[in-house]
Amino acid sequence: MKRFTFDYTSPRVVFGAQSVSALPDEIRRLGLRSLLVVSTRDQHELAKDIVRPINDSIAGYFDGATMHVPVEVVEKAQRAFEDAGADSIIAIGGGSTTGLAKILSMRLGVSSLVIPTTYAGSEMTTIWGTTEDGLKRTGRDARVLPKTVIYDPLLTIGLPPAISVTSGLNAIAHAVEGLYAAELNPILEMMCKQGIVALIDAIPRLVAKPADIDARTDALFGAWMCGTALCHLGMGLHHKLCHTLGGTLNLPHAEAHAVVLPHALAYNLPNAPTARRLLEGVVGNDDVPGTLYDLAKNAGAPLSLAEIGMRSEDIPIVLDLALKDQYPNPRPLEPDGLETLLANAFYGRRPTFH
Rank of each mutant, 00 (worst) to 15 (best):
N170W: 06
H174D: 04
G246S: 11
L305P: 08
P270I: 10
P351Y: 09
P11I: 12
L184Y: 02
G134A: 01
S88A: 15
I27N: 15
I89G: 08
Q194F: 11
D212P: 03
D56E: 15
A181L: 09
S164N: 06
V282K: 10
T340K: 13
A171V: 05
E334M: 10
V283L: 11
A202L: 01
R41M: 08
R143G: 01
M235H: 12
A301E: 11
T131I: 00
V176T: 05
V38A: 04
L265Q: 12
G95C: 09
T148S: 14
R143C: 11
K324H: 10
M191V: 04
L278R: 13
L36E: 01
R137L: 15
A120D: 01
R205V: 12
C231P: 04
T291L: 03
A142T: 09
D56L: 07
A306T: 00
D7P: 08
Y119L: 09
T274I: 07
E183N: 09
Y347E: 14
A306Y: 00
D42F: 06
S111E: 09
T217D: 04
K136I: 00
G290D: 11
V318I: 13
M67P: 04
A142W: 01
L169N: 07
K324F: 12
L169I: 15
E183K: 07
R205L: 13
M225E: 15
T352M: 14
D25V: 02
L145S: 09
R107E: 14
A301C: 13
Y180E: 00
V38W: 08
T98K: 02
I103T: 08
V51T: 11
E72R: 10
P270T: 08
H68C: 07
G16P: 15
A306R: 08
A254G: 07
P316V: 00
L188P: 02
A254W: 00
I92H: 13
A65T: 02
G158A: 12
V114W: 00
L159F: 10
T148M: 13
L23P: 11
R311G: 14
V71G: 12
M191S: 07
A301Y: 02
A84H: 09
M310V: 10
A17G: 01
I203S: 12
I115N: 05
G337M: 07
P146C: 01
A229S: 14
T131S: 05
A219K: 02
V288Y: 13
D314F: 12
H239R: 07
G139V: 02
A120I: 03
T166R: 04
L100F: 00
N285H: 14
G16W: 06
N268S: 14
T98W: 08
L261M: 03
E339I: 12
L155P: 10
I213V: 13
A211Q: 07
G300I: 01
P186M: 14
K102E: 01
G121I: 04
I50C: 09
G234R: 00
H257W: 04
L155A: 13
G348T: 03
T248M: 14
P328R: 06
A80E: 13
A171H: 08
K48Q: 15
I115D: 03
G284Y: 06
L237V: 15
V73R: 13
T118D: 10
V197N: 10
A322V: 15
L338N: 00
T131A: 01
K324Y: 10
V14N: 06
